[in-house]
C-alpha cells in the first residue's frame, strides 16, 4: 500500500493503523498531531484508523520558531 507521508511516497504494509505507524516511527503521542487527507485525526482514533492506499498523511510536531 502506498501512502504519502509528510510529502514522501512510502510503501507501508496493509492493515497498518496510525497508531502502528506512529510507534514504528518512534514518535511519542503527546507531542504530535496527525492529519489525514487534510482532516485532523483525533488522538483517540489512532488505533482505529487503518491507513488506506493513497492516503496523504501529515505528522507534525513543534520546533524552534519565533
Amino acid at each position: 500500500m502506498r501512502v504519502t507521508l509528510n510529502g514522501e511516497s512510502r510503501d507501508l504494509r496493509d492493515g497498518l493503523t496510525v497508531a502502528d505507524l506512529v510507534s514504528d516511527l518512534g514518535l511519542r503521542l503527546r507531542r504530535i498531531a496527525v492529519e489525514i487527507n487534510l482532516d485532523i485525526l483525533p488522538r483517540d482514533d489512532y488505533s482505529h484508523r487503518t491507513l488506506r492506499e493513497g492516503d496523504v498523511v501529515e505528522i507534525v510536531h513543534f520546533i524552534g520558531g519565533g
Binding site: N6, G7, A33, V60, H61, F62, I63, G64, G65, G66
Partner: peptide, 10 residues
C-alpha cells in the same frame, strides 16, 4: 514562548 509547527523528520 513561541514555537513553530513543522513536519516530523520521518
Amino acid at each position: 514562548v513561541t514555537v513553530a509547527v513543522r513536519r516530523v523528520n520521518i
